[in-house]
């Protein structure tokens, strides 16, 4: 009975995502039309006259009324066509598909890094309030948010590449000496492993480490803070007192009873942090010459490349919906109370 209602809940949640996708399509379309700058002018070049601009506008379909443009846009979308980039002439979909895995790989590794550091830090800080570890947690989180990523990125490059020579040159996803592995997932590390090419794997990891740490240091703060706060609240609750009064070992009390409950708000934070990271790591991508989706978006924006911007916003929004969906489903799995109240 309980299981059936759970799966029904997940199904209903999936259905709820559909209208938000439709809404996103409408809003991204309108937003990109509202962008300042005329793509036709940009595309025609500085020497163009009124006539050629009008011609280009007509060929792009920009002279039609808004609703007609929208119908064309949706029709193209249904065929998987996000339009062509004005500046590179490549289909937007292809470009996004080739750049998205780079950003995803970086973001996921950064997230794993920051969870690995922030969760234990938050738990330890909460179990020993005002101890040195709590102070450390405070310093790390404050530093993490207050140091801009381009600074930490450059600093890490300076120390580990320039001074110590431990890290490879911050030049993209893979040293030119290596060939990218056959694309399966688009993640170089996983593809290299799938191809059985350990050398490429290590090379890819080497390139990933510094940008991932840079990004991870920034996202550490919200996760550590949330963990600490949620842990303090969980450890102060009455069932922890019952567990202690029953003589349960400290590990069990802190981890199973405390963290088990504290992890619920942390999971929600993770979803937000992940979506945020994905779109906003432009600076890190720039510093490490990372061919990700963030730098792509900035270039498109500067060039008034509306098809590319539209494609980017749409991709991010859909990712956002997917991540939130995943978080909600995970939440439903770990919290038995979800479903009864909802």
């Amino acid at each position: 009975m309980a299981r059936r209602s759970k799966s029904a809940l997940v199904g209903r949640r999936l259905l709820q995502a559909a209208p938000s996708v439709v809404g996103i399509i409408i809003v991204t379309f309108l937003l990109t039309r509202a962008l300042p700058g005329d793509p036709a002018v940009y595309f025609a070049g500085p020497a163009a006259d009124e006539n050629s601009i009008a011609q280009i506008r007509a060929s792009l379909g920009l002279d039609r009324p808004l609703h007609e443009q929208f119908i064309f846009y949706v029709g193209d979308l249904l065929q998987g066509d996000l339009g062509k980039s004005l500046s590179t002439g490549q289909p937007v979909l292809d470009e996004i598909l080739s750049r998205l895995p780079a950003s995803l790989e970086l973001t996921l590794l950064a997230l794993i890094f920051s969870i690995a550091v922030a969760l234990p830090l938050g738990v330890l800080a909460a179990t020993r309030p005002n101890s040195w570890i709590d102070q450390l947690c405070r310093i790390v989180t404050t530093a993490g948010v207050s140091l801009p990523t381009f600074f930490t990125g450059l600093f890490l490059v300076y120390v580990f590449y320039y001074l110590l020579g431990l890290a490879p040159a911050p030049m993209g996803r893979l040293n030119i000496a290596f060939l990218p592995p056959d694309p399966v997932t688009g993640f170089f590390t996983i593809d290299a492993l799938l191809a059985g090419d350990l050398e490429t794997f290590w090379a890819a990891i080497g390139q990933l480490i510094l940008p991932a740490i840079t990004l991870g240091l920034f996202t550490l703060a919200p996760i550590a803070r949330m963990t600490r706060g949620a842990m303090l609240q969980a450890l102060g609750s009455e069932f922890i007192r019952t567990a202690r009064a029953a003589g349960l070992p400290r590990r069990k009390v802190v981890l199973t009873y405390g963290l088990g409950n504290a992890v619920l708000p942390v999971v929600t934070t993770l979803g937000m942090v992940f979506s945020f990271m994905l779109g906003s790591n432009v600076l890190v991508e720039k510093v490490f010459a990372w061919p990700g989706i963030g730098s792509y978006a900035i270039e498109a924006l500067v060039a008034s490349d509306y098809a590319a911007v539209q494609g980017f916003v749409l991709t991010m929004a859909i990712l956002f919906v997917v991540v939130n969906l995943a978080i909600d489903i995970v939440y439903t799995m770990i919290d038995p109370r979800v479903g009864i109240e909802g």
Binding site: E238, T242, L248, I334
Partner: peptide, 23 residues
Amino acid sequence: RDIRGREISMIFQNPRVSLNPIR
């Protein structure tokens, strides 16, 4: 810790919140 629960036990007011809600 050995004594708690085995020699001396305690039960509390408000039983609903005295139990781990997700276990």
